[in-house]
Nucleic acid binder design. Structure first.
Lengths: 258, 258
DNA sequence: AATTTATATTTGTAAGACAAATTAACATTT
DNA sequence: AAATGTTAATTTGTCTTACAAATATAAATT
């Protein structure tokens, strides 16, 4: 006669389904590039309706855990999550954190300085020839005066990522990917003039040399120089931007206006 | 005669809606605890069906950006995202990263050591009296022999979070929250014996004193001692666990079996 | 043989209905 | 009059059914 109802499953069905699927992915039952059953199939297996399954899948899609394609050979597949994809995901979270807690980019920048210094020290110890080659390649890209500023910024990101990777501490470089990405808006704002590009490229050149020579003190000093330089440019740019902001008009129609 | 269709919006409707809503939250149009329009209302405003709106909302719910309640005073509300909620979100991502890239917890642990050392240095410089009080309070909790091991672990987490916060670099402490959380499984595994608890508590006591005295060299040394001690315990525990693992049976029915 | 055309499969979107939860107002009883 | 129970309204949660759009495979046609 004991009912054994216990604590009722309060979570919504779609959440329960999403959690089970995520668990399966995390645990390795579903590996990268595996194809999930079709939505109809999942609905039958979980004994819920297809919209419920879809809501669950959207939850996972928001986390970049799965991708979907239509058609006969389509379906839903498990994503292979490398540092890139996951840190992209992390970046949106830290962007949120920055915007909602009103942390200045300067504060983020100081964190980056500390952590990237750490990377540099480790990189000086652990860098391999192939690490150095990668950094050389990006450096050459940056020396080309014909690339757009977007391309320059992308090469800049890859250069700093290469430093992080050269630390050969995967967790650390994972976190660094996020910080580098989080500060891209700053880099985009300021890397449009040739003179600044040249300064940055020259710094990279010296930085690479010092890592090559395993001179970690010099490396961290150059890094500090660069980040402080960027901060300074950023503050100037922000001052200009403030003025433009004052007489700007609303561009997109507001969905939530009355 | 120019059609101007341009690149067709290839993203699904639910994704577009989700992106617009997220943008509104990020930008500040929708503030914390604001209530969104009802789903029917949103469907009308965005000119899509309610299931589409719901899929969009689930995407945001997966990111912990919103919460929903049923009923007349219910609806969908914007979450206030503090360090806690966001780092919880980050933790699942880094857990994924750890599990999918086969990074050993030892490697994560070494990253934590480096970063927490940095926190300690900054904490020695910047700690305020209220920071120290917080750490004292957690330390007293840990000295109580009557608490469960879960409570002990929780107090341990709060102690280390307090160190991170004492650095007064919010971005750094944000990242540290994630790392501390990511290593909780290890802590849970080993903090069940009184003897180990006492050793850890004693280390915390010395750590707190050195931060109080602003002796950053001593602080980082003690921290290193603790983390290496934990690593050692973890390796022993893992060796034991390997044996148990071999004769374990599948607990949950596999949804994806044939 | 190459190209085009059907066709089947699968996700994406829509509409309508009902269930469940929860609040607010109202009625009832003490 | 106050406490309590009841009802009604509102909102999210879920289900059902249907159709649209994309796309790979197989068939048909040139």
């Amino acid at each position: 006669m004991s009912l054994e109802i216990g604590p009722v499953n309060k979570a919504s069905l779609s959440k329960q389904v999403a959690d089970q699927l995520q668990e399966a992915i995390l645990e390795g039952t579903l590996k990268a590039d595996d194809r999930l059953p079709t939505e109809d199939d999942l609905a039958k297996r979980f004994q819920v309706s297809r919209p419920t399954i879809r809501e669950a899948l959207k939850r996972l899609a928001a986390k970049n855990l799965i991708r979907s394609r239509r058609g006969p050979a389509g379906g839903t597949f498990v994503n292979h999550l490398g540092k890139g994809e996951l840190s992209e995901h992390l970046t949106t979270a830290s962007t949120l954190f920055v915007s909602m807690n009103q942390i200045s980019l300067t504060e983020v920048s100081s964190t980056r300085l500390e952590m990237e210094s750490l990377c540099c020290q480790l990189a000086c110890q652990n860098r391999t020839p192939s690490d150095l080659e990668l950094m050389e390649a990006e450096l050459e890209q940056q020396q080309n005066r014909n690339i757009t500023s977007e391309e320059f910024c992308a090469a800049d990101v890859r250069f700093h990522r290469a430093i992080a990777d050269a630390s050969h501490n995967r967790m650390l470089s994972f976190i660094m990917y996020t910080l580098i990405e989080a500060l891209q808006p700053v880099a985009n704002m300021i890397a449009y003039r040739f003179r600044e590009r040249e300064i940055i490229t020259a710094q990279h050149k010296r930085l690479l040399a010092s890592i090559k020579n395993q001179d970690s003190n010099l490396a961290t000093a150059i890094l500090k120089e660069q980040i402080e330089y960027l901060d300074q440019l950023h503050q100037e740019a922000q001052a200009n931007h403030q003025q433009k902001e004052s007489n700007k008009t609303v561009s997109a129609p507001n969905i939530f206006g009355r």
